[in-house]
């Protein structure tokens, strides 16, 4: 069955929250709750209560980036220092740990930051083409609920959204 997209705009977060609760409870055939997206001009911490746990994975990128950065830093420096045919050390340690810690720390941070940003882009799906159902009002002061559902479910979903004082509903045929 063909799927369609709906974008409903709300004046405030409370109305949008109530609509989402009802959509979750309604168990509408042809509509998967995971296909619901909330769009807002600010970050709402409460959104997790409303949408259920949808975890972020950026921290795993951070962990890998920081560890790889630190290890890379340490082994690159040590590799250069261990070139003792060229650099005569005169009894001093070939790979001195205390001073190497400083550069290792810097590389640890560098790797952590760069890979976190990469992780952010991957996890947030950026860069992305703007979806056809985007309203500039969402970046101003309105809350949007974007829903993807079977054509048969659209009327019911629309009913729920209008029930909760949706200001405007945009509709477009999905793929």
């Amino acid at each position: 069955m063909s799927q369609r997209h709906l974008l409903a705009l709300f004046n405030n977060f409370e109305d949008a929250e109530a609509a989402i609760y009802e959509l979750r409870a309604a168990d509408i055939k042809g509509f998967d709750f995971d296909d619901l997206t909330l769009k807002s001009p600010i970050e709402h911490h409460e959104v997790e209560d409303v949408l259920g746990q949808r975890s972020a994975k950026v921290q795993w990128f951070t962990l890998v980036g920081a560890l790889l950065g630190g290890l890379l830093g340490f082994f690159l420096i040590s590799g250069a220092q261990a070139n003792f045919y060229a650099q005569i050390k005169g009894g001093k340690p070939i790979v001195p740990f205390p001073p190497n810690f400083v550069l290792t720390f810097e590389m640890f941070v560098l790797g952590g930051v760069f890979i976190s940003v990469l992780g952010f882009l991957v996890c947030a799906g950026l860069p992305a083409k703007r979806s056809p159902l985007y309203s500039a009002k969402v970046s101003e002061d309105q809350i949007g609920i974007l829903v993807k559902a079977d054509e048969s479910a659209i009327a019911k979903i629309k009913g729920v959204l209008l029930n909760h004082e949706a200001l405007e509903i945009q509709e477009e045929a999905g793929k």
């Binding site: 909330l38 970050e43 976190s116 996890c123 799906g125 992305a128």
Partner: peptide, 28 residues
């Protein structure tokens, strides 16, 4: 702006990333 639309997925990852970089920057 990379096509930012303010979706819950974007905000969720944004929050973690911003906090993570803040944690790195302070000792840095």
């Amino acid at each position: 702006s990379l096509g930012w639309e303010g979706t819950d997925r974007q905000w969720r990852n944004f929050r973690v990333t911003y906090l993570t970089i803040a944690c790195f920057l302070s000792p840095l």
